[in-house]
């Protein structure tokens, strides 16, 4: 089947198998390997991207469902010389260790903060409940999200 989708501002028309997941389209067809796969039960959030302005788990969305959508991935929110405030805050607060959960965590956090400006510690913890990090113990992730919330 054919999917028309805009990813990080660029329009694509792609030929994919019917059962292709959005995360596969991003990683395999477009080579956007910043979006990771950490589980097969929609539990870890490593694959989180934005679709039409909302965070979604890209392992749980069919490519077909992204027909006509605007998708933004970790590669699309900032660049090495112009980081998104959330990226900046993650680096500043040492909110990542191995970095594997990080893209999904950042994408979830951006969505969380944009829907809840002024969010507090408990709000961040509850809001990031769908993203697992095995390295950081979350302490510095929570700090980073609150810091970014003040700069977004």
């Amino acid at each position: 089947m054919q999917v028309e989708v805009t990813v990080n501002g660029q329009a694509h028309v792609l030929e994919v198998a019917d059962n292709t997941l959005l995360v596969e389209l991003l990683r395999e067809n477009l080579g956007l390997t910043g979006t990771h796969v950490g589980c097969d039960t929609s539990q870890c959030g490593a694959c989180t991207v934005h679709m039409d302005g909302r965070s979604v788990k890209a392992c749980t969305v069919l490519a077909a469902q992204a027909q006509g959508a605007e998708v933004v991935t970790i590669e699309g929110i900032g660049s090495a010389d112009a980081l998104h405030p959330m990226q900046e805050a993650f680096r500043d607060c040492h909110a990542l260790q191995c970095g594997f959960c990080t893209p999904g965590m950042i994408m979830s956090a951006i969505d969380l903060v944009s829907r809840n400006p002024g969010i507090d510690n408990a709000g961040v913890r509850a809001g990031l409940e769908g993203n697992i990090c095995r390295c950081t113990g979350y302490h510095n992730i929570v700090r980073a999200v609150i810091q970014a919330a003040q700069n977004m």
């Binding site: 990683r27 956007l32 390997t33 910043g34 979006t35 990771h36 796969v37 991935t73 970790i74 590669e75 900032g78 660049s79 090495a80 980081l83 990226q87 993650f90 680096r91 500043d92 040492h94 990542l96 970095g99 594997f100 990080t102 893209p103 950042i106």
Partner: peptide, 19 residues
């Protein structure tokens, strides 16, 4: 010191085996 490795991870340009 802030970490050297972070820039690639926060921008999605880390290179893990599956990538």
């Amino acid at each position: 010191v802030k970490r050297k490795e972070d820039l690639r991870f926060i921008t999605g340009s880390g290179r893990y085996t599956d990538d």
